[in-house]
């Protein structure tokens, strides 16, 4: 959350539901994940396997592709930023939907936390914070791998890390807001229904020019499209004012998501 937005945002949140101790929730998650370190570590490998397989295999069918500025880049360099964006989305969505739903309705974990001074906003921020911390570690590792494979063309790529965090924050906030409306596991079909097409069609694997114009417009509305464009601009060093537009998209998502999530959690947890 950017500093100037914070006070305004604050007034939109329910009073008395924030004790300023979201950090303790993150301590809890860190402690818990020590026992499931393998699952933790495995999260990094998913995009890496995609990069290895698709970059070399599919790349052999395609050859080079035009980059954001029209200059040809290798297929691996084309999909790597896409995979970085997609993995930021996938991780954030998984953490904020399945995990939160389970803790909310099955483990009743949040009920126990609300018996302490923690409020719903601590819970929401703590969970999102942990998702970001984890996502940040994965993104750092993935960017290092990209650098190792020579897929990074510009120092602007360093900004891909904070960009990945913002993208993850936006998806986590929206995901948590959506979870607060879900009644049963059956509703999670809808999550798959939203995430999988985005992963496949948001120019992760091939450029927008493949589509007819009307489909291009649809894709341009999807959040992951903006994330992919943002990352691709940064890692290839094609940086312009257009990137700010992509950024704005995610700032709006964050604000909307956090406000809805906090209000809904308040109502769900404090009945």
């Amino acid at each position: 959350m950017s500093a100037p937005a914070a006070p305004a945002l604050w007034r939109l949140l329910p009073a008395g539901s924030y004790a300023g101790r979201a950090r303790m929730m993150m301590v809890r998650s860190a402690t818990a994940s020590r026992r499931t370190w393998l699952a933790f570590v495995s999260g990094f490998f998913e995009p890496l396997f995609y990069l290895l397989a698709m970059g070399t295999g599919l790349g052999s069918l395609v050859g080079d592709l035009p980059g954001p500025d029209g200059q040809p880049i290798s297929y691996a360099a084309f999909i790597a930023p896409g995979l970085l964006a997609a993995s930021a989305m996938n991780g954030a969505v998984f953490d904020s939907t399945y995990n939160v739903f389970f803790k909310l309705h099955y483990a009743r974990l949040y009920d126990s936390m609300l018996a302490t001074p923690l409020g719903p906003v601590d819970v929401a921020l703590g969970e999102i914070g942990w998702a970001l911390l984890r996502g940040g570690l994965y993104a750092t590792a993935f960017l290092s791998v990209m650098a190792g494979f020579g897929l990074i063309e510009s120092p602007w790529a360093l900004l891909a890390l904070p960009a990945a965090l913002l993208v993850a924050f936006a998806f986590a906030a929206i995901g948590m807001a959506a979870t607060s409306f879900m009644r049963s596991w059956q509703d999670f079909d809808l999550v798959t229904l939203a995430v999988l097409p985005m992963f496949l069609f948001s120019t992760t694997f091939y450029p927008l020019s493949v589509y007819p114009r009307w489909l291009q417009i649809v894709v341009e509305c999807l959040p992951l499209y903006h994330a992919v464009e943002l990352m691709r601009g940064l890692t290839t060093g094609v940086v312009g004012a257009g990137l700010l537009g992509h950024l704005a998209y995610f700032v709006v998502m964050v604000v909307v998501g956090v406000v809805i999530a906090a209000r809904r959690l308040d109502r769900l947890l404090l009945r």
């Binding site: 809890r28 499931t36 483990a107 974990l109």
Partner: peptide, 17 residues
């Protein structure tokens, strides 16, 4: 809540800890 203790009807211990 900082000064009270709560034992809920159903145990909601943290199974991951």
């Amino acid at each position: 809540r900082a000064r009270i203790g709560v034992v809920p009807q159903l145990d909601n211990l943290d199974a991951e800890l």
